[in-house]
Design a protein around this nucleic acid. Structure first.
Length: 350
DNA sequence: ACCCGACCTGCTAT
DNA sequence: AATAGCAGGTCGG
């Protein structure tokens, strides 16, 4: 591998913390290849990211003709010979700024949310630098179809498998081959459902195949991108018409790739957060009805305002970590009882 | 409008 | 060693 230029971008940790932002269940493809060093795919390139107190350091691995060996015949049409000229720093920086939405000042947002909410005030120091990613709608849609009634570890595994099966090879780095995310067309092809079933996707195999076909019927990736210009309500409804996308997943997509930063995906975690800290009367609710779903979203929007979905992600990150801690505490006998008690409490909130 | 069971799979706790 | 329970839900009745 030829040596790769490392560029730097001024960005203090208060504005972006990679380890939280890349691990809080927004995107499922980032890997910490060594402490503090993250690798993943943005667009059709592999990115390596590190940071210090003041800067993000990044390098990219562009495609070369050697890497363009396609196993997927459908994807062959898409590959084209590109010059080996490295993408200039300027363009890379623009991609990075777009992906991390660096045009938003987190300092300003956190400051507003701290004023609005005591709970946020308590968590914001430990969970500084949590950013909403601006993701690709295709990756977002199919990743979150995989997320239903599933855990982050397996979701990540399935998403990676999807890329290996139907994406195109980008680069091989340190023995790991990276693939682009599949095109909608490749997921709509004949036999995809059967293959994915055999590959451990379970009932999501049908959701993926059917939704890919539905998107193709409506105009493919251009249609999906066009949803960005719709109102939140229309965008949410269109996405929900796809198979395997309900209210929660639709809100994830609205928030993470459609630019609707007030969308609140209400899952089990958010339901519990709401019942515990915001809407006590929900503690007696057994199931998350549509009415309660809307009530929780509306409440968060009332508290946090225009960018409530972003604020929700900070709270969600904190809850996710609390949840991880509960599990790992089980390894320490002295803390076992306490962990159990907390877990019971956690479950009762349902 | 609401509730309920079924649903794939792999990891964890018991 | 075997088995129930659960994980960023959705669908159909």
């Amino acid at each position: 591998m030829t040596s790769t230029k490392i560029f730097s971008l001024l960005c203090p940790k208060s504005e972006l913390q990679l380890h939280v932002t890349l691990q809080c269940g927004q995107s499922f493809r980032w890997r910490e290849i060594s402490p503090g060093k993250w690798q993943g795919v943005i667009g059709h390139k592999v990115w390596t990211l590190t940071q210090d107190e003041s800067h993000i350091h990044y390098s990219t691995y562009p495609k070369t003709s050697d890497d363009e060996v396609c196993t997927n015949p459908k994807a062959k049409q898409k590959t084209k010979r590109t010059n080996k000229i490295d993408v200039g720093q300027e363009k890379s920086e623009a991609v990075l700024k777009d992906y991390f939405r660096l045009d938003f000042s987190l300092e300003k947002l956190y400051s507003d949310w701290k004023k609005a909410d005591l709970n946020f005030r308590l968590l914001c120091h430990e969970f500084a630098g949590v950013r909403m990613l601006n993701q690709d709608p295709v990756e977002n849609v199919f990743s979150f179809i995989c997320s239903s009634n599933n855990n982050i570890k397996r979701i990540s595994m399935l998403v990676e498998r999807l890329c290996q099966l139907y994406g195109t090879k980008i680069s091989t780095l340190d023995g790991t081959t990276w693939h682009s995310f599949p095109t909608v067309s490749s997921l709509a092809a004949e036999g995809v459902e059967e293959t994915l079933r055999a590959q451990g996707f379970g009932y999501r195999a049908k959701f993926i195949h059917k939704s890919a076909q539905m998107i193709m019927e409506r105009g493919g990736e251009a249609w999906l991108h066009s949803l960005r210009s719709l109102s939140y309500e229309d965008c949410h409804a269109e996405l929900m018409s796809l198979h395997g996308i309900g209210a929660k997943v639709s809100d994830c997509i609205c928030l993470m790739s459609m630019g609707h930063l007030s969308a609140i995906p209400v899952d089990t975690h958010v339901f519990q957060i709401a019942a515990k800290d915001y809407l006590p009367h929900l503690r007696s609710c057994k199931t998350l009805t549509q009415k309660v779903y809307c009530e929780i979203g509306d409440h968060f929007r009332k508290v946090f305002g225009e960018y409530a979905g972003w604020a929700h992600s900070v709270l969600f990150s904190a809850d996710l970590k609390r949840f991880e801690n509960l599990k790992s505490q089980g390894n320490h006998p002295s803390q076992d009882k306490q962990a159990k008690r907390q877990k019971i409490k956690h479950n009762c909130a349902k």
